[in-house]
Each structure stands twice: as C-alpha cells, then as structure tokens.
C-alpha cells in the first residue's frame, strides 16, 4: 500500500480537527474535534510503524498510549466543562472570557472621567 494514502488521510483528518477546534462554539464539540486530531496522529503512528517494520513496534505502542491518554483527557476535559457549566450556565467557548481585556473597566473609567469633568 502506498504510504501516501494513510499519510494524506491523516493530514486531512488533522486539518478537519483543526477547523473543528477553531470553529465550534460548544466546548464538547471542541473536545470531539481534539479527538479527531488525536486519531489523525494515531493513524500516522500506525502507518509509519508498519512501513518502518519497527522491531520494537514503537508506533503501535505509542498509539495505545495515546488512546489511553486521550481517554483520560476527555474524562478530565468533560469534568472541567461540567464545572464551568455549573458555575456559568453555559458551555460556549467564546463566553468564557474572564481573562480577556476588561472593556467594562474602560467604560467605567470613562464614565468617571465624564463625571469628574462635569
């Protein structure tokens, strides 16, 4: 089998995952897209492992580890999402912007300035 097939498929899956991570609004959908990206990497690992005929089978072993880590990741990620949802009643990524630049502070200080000027 041509190595290009799994490699290109992995690349395309990865890019689809990138799109999903960047475009989805719901955090759980973002996590799903992350799974897609991880699986693209898994595909690469398996394909190259077979191609290289690695005696240690590093690729497949690493794939197993990745799957395990991915399972842990999704569990922890969902726990975090649930926590966020419990405190904020939302699971939308673009509404969790507490670390952003505080525009309210600007508006407040502007208002104070106007008051002082008046």
């Amino acid at each position: 089998m041509h190595l290009a097939y799994p490699a290109v498929l992995a690349v395309l899956l990865f890019s689809v995952g990138v799109y999903g991570v960047l475009a989805r609004r719901n955090v759980i959908l973002v996590l799903m897209s992350v799974e897609l990206m991880l699986n693209a990497v898994n595909l690469n690992l398996v394909a190259f492992d077979v191609w290289l005929r690695d005696t240690l089978h590093a690729g497949q072993a690493l794939t197993l580890f990745t799957i395990t880590v991915a399972a842990a990741e999704i569990g922890l990620g969902l726990a975090v999402v649930l926590l966020v949802y419990r405190t904020r009643r939302t699971a939308a990524v673009d509404e969790v912007t507490a670390l952003g630049d505080r525009h309210e502070a600007d508006e407040l200080s502007d208002g104070e300035k106007e008051q002082a000027a008046a």
Partner: peptide, 17 residues
Amino acid sequence: VRFAQTGNAQGYLSALL
C-alpha cells in the same frame, strides 16, 4: 493591541496555529 485581547481562547489558538 488591546482589541486582540478578547479572552476568547479560540481566537488565540487561531493566531497560534
């Protein structure tokens, strides 16, 4: 530059990637 600091992680990630 402040306008970039939206707090939206997706925006940051887009720029990073």
